[in-house]
Design a protein around this nucleic acid. Structure first.
Lengths: 243, 243
DNA sequence: GAGTGGTCTAGACCACAAT
DNA sequence: TTGTGGTCTAGACCACTCC
């Protein structure tokens, strides 16, 4: 349900300005890492006072979509800035260190969306996607196996790009190469039994309990961009909130 | 490491005021649900401008520690207001509904802290605690078994109180009866095999994968007040972020 | 009608980064 | 030295709640 035009016009100035700034960020007018105009300049541009412009900017800065630095200016936040705000789960070793030392890519294959993938991504079954399998290591030990499914229509050529660069942080690639900023993730956690591929790749025992996380990543327009299934060994690591 | 007095004096006014408001809330000067003085009154009391007082209040309102209502005033937030901010995991049914229809208490027993409990709560082994076991139901089906451990020194008489009232929401009781407000929770999630008590109480199969969440709840002074272990059946429910 | 918080303005001075 | 964001002030008008 959209707002009526009258209701739209009634919204506070700072909110309308904020929505427009958000629109301009997601349009790619300012890229991650780039400087925005100063708050004085923006206030003048929108015809509001500096205080109002500050308020419009501040909420976006709280979400780390913008990053403010005194003396320097306001930049569009990069993925590393926003990680803590996304509220996703982190796998942590028994001693409390975060996982993510090394990544090894198993395969990158073009495919058609399965029923489950289509449902998760909000697309039609059979739509072109890219599937990626990779392993995450902690101290040379494989700990997580990940199955990624990426929307080929939103990310044309993502398969060959991933194959060529094998990035540690996918969302940073989406930002730099496709101007797609992940604004929200949704995750479901379940406990599962280890199956044959888990035994083979992670060296766990068949039937052993493992954690499975299904994540759907949305961009700033709330379009589902990626679906990821992570299966993690559970004897040496546990799941916790970020931070 | 505390700040030097000089550094303390350098802190912005609104931060010093904010810390003092926080202190007054946790001292019980204003109880959950009660009205604070108006922002004008607070500004006068602290000798700052209204804008500065607003800024001090606003961050606490973002954390739902305070709740502001136009025309009415500012109240201390009650637990139900803050739930979404605590960033804890929620068990959700397959269709997306939250669990928590009914609670049944199994037993409430005084005890001495085990090594694991002592470590989690930051107290000495053997300190007096209260242990509680209870079941959570969803549509008449037992879904979660919870083991609570509560610090008796911070919550004197909590055992008999729980036994008498059998509350649905423990943290609301801590607020009302002990003026202890839960400001942060820390959770660890692992996958475990169902054991005999799980079979008996939840009707799962022996060895079946289950989710186990260990939660430590801290009050506003960051003292660990409660430790909770939740074991959840996993075939009909999954874990997700709040909201 | 009196009092509350929500929005908005127009200034001031400051710490800090860039050059 | 210039310009940035961070703090702080002192007003204004408004929507809303409560009596």
């Amino acid at each position: 349900m959209g707002m009526t035009e009258a209701a739209e016009a009634m919204k506070p100035l700072y909110l309308r300005m904020q929505e427009d700034l958000l629109r301009r960020v997601q349009s790619g007018e300012w890229r991650p890492g780039e400087l925005l105009p100063s708050e004085n300049a923006l206030a003048a541009e929108y015809g509001v006072s500096v205080g109002t412009a500050r308020k419009a900017i501040e909420e976006l800065a709280d979400r780390r979509l913008l990053v403010r630095q005194r003396g320097r200016g306001t930049t569009v936040g990069m993925h590393t800035h926003r990680e803590e705000v996304l509220r996703h789960y982190r796998l942590v070793s028994g001693t409390g260190e975060r996982v993510n030392q090394d990544t090894s890519y198993l395969d990158v294959t073009p495919a058609r969306a399965s029923a489950a993938e289509a449902k998760a991504l909000g697309i039609n079954r059979g739509t072109a996607v890219t599937r990626v399998r990779r392993l995450r290591f902690y101290q040379k030990q494989p700990v997580v196996i990940e199955h990624l499914t990426l929307r080929e229509d939103l990310l044309p050529g993502i398969g060959t790009l991933i194959d060529a660069t094998r990035p540690e942080v996918l969302y940073a690639v989406l930002e730099r190469q496709f101007h797609i900023i992940i604004g929200k993730v949704q995750e479901k956690v379940t406990a599962v039994r280890a199956e044959a591929p888990d035994v083979e790749l992670l060296g766990v025992e068949l039937g052993e309990p493992m954690l499975q996380i299904e994540r759907i990543a949305f961009d700033l327009r709330s379009l589902a961009v990626e679906r990821r299934i992570m299966r993690a060994r559970n004897d040496t690591h546990y799941l916790s909130e970020f931070a």
